[in-house]
Amino acid sequence: MSREIVLDTETTGFDPKTGDRMIEVGCIEIEDLLPTGRTFHRLIHPERLIPADAIRVHGITDDKVRDAPKFAEIVIDLCDFIGDAPIIAHNAQFDRNFIDHEFGRCGRALFHEDRWIDTLKLAQARFPGMANSLDALCKRYKISLVERSLHGALIDARLLAEVYLELKGGKERRLDLSSSRPISAAAAAHAASGYPLRPRPLEPRGGEAEQAAHEAFLRAILKDWSLWKGYGVEIEAG
């Protein structure tokens, strides 16, 4: 199975070289482009005060991280969770800069650059010239943002996992992995539409006369009856 880790961070600012630090990290494990349910999430004490501008973005205050562990105290758990999997991030250079900085402070070897997959670059290649922020992609793919009033590492990682699924094949990929049982052409077309299948079909509302008229209409205009078999219409050519 192909294992990947979707990662997001929240920080005190934009540049670790000027003293900014990581204050939250969230990871989602996916295998074969499907979430496994395993996550990693930690608040981190940044060993400095959090600026008001940053708090307005993610809502993480000094009080919230007062008793949180320092990065050096969670780095082993983080590395164990990530393992040797590729790391998926949106505008990955930002998150990578902070991960590299914190690893450097701990004296740990950095994740190789080839392990990082940038969904911003994937989106820019697919939608050149368009807005490709995480919010914009969620709206484009109709991924609900109702749970997020502020940025949060684990929430954003969950959203990014859904965006990444869409960028890598979307509904077709979900359809391929949803069941090992063969499905009818009608079910496949319905699933690809994005609407859920009914738990049970609606009862026919037309009478025998209407059904007979409908079958006569189909006989007159269609030559390939097999097209309609997947939709529950059984017609024998006359």
Rank of each mutant, 00 (worst) to 15 (best):
V163N: 02
I117F: 01
S2W: 00
A72H: 10
E210L: 07
K70Q: 07
A186V: 10
H101Q: 13
V75F: 03
R158W: 04
A125K: 09
E47Y: 03
G26K: 04
L175M: 07
K139P: 01
T36N: 08
L122C: 04
L167M: 09
L34G: 07
D95E: 13
D114M: 14
V6G: 01
I99Y: 00
L177W: 03
E215W: 07
C79E: 12
E31T: 03
H101T: 05
K121M: 11
I88F: 04
R205H: 02
P204T: 04
W228R: 11
N97L: 05
K142R: 11
F217C: 13
D62L: 10
G107F: 06
D15V: 02
P201G: 08
H190Q: 13
R181Y: 00
L202Q: 14
G170K: 09
P46E: 02
R219C: 04
V146L: 08
L227W: 11
C106W: 03
D224N: 14
R21T: 06
A136W: 02
D114F: 13
I50G: 08
L202V: 11
C79T: 06
G152T: 11
L197H: 15
A125N: 11
D63H: 08
A54T: 00
E102M: 06
G59E: 09
E113P: 01
R42W: 12
A213G: 12
L122P: 02
D224F: 02
K70H: 12
E29Q: 09
L78H: 06
A131T: 04
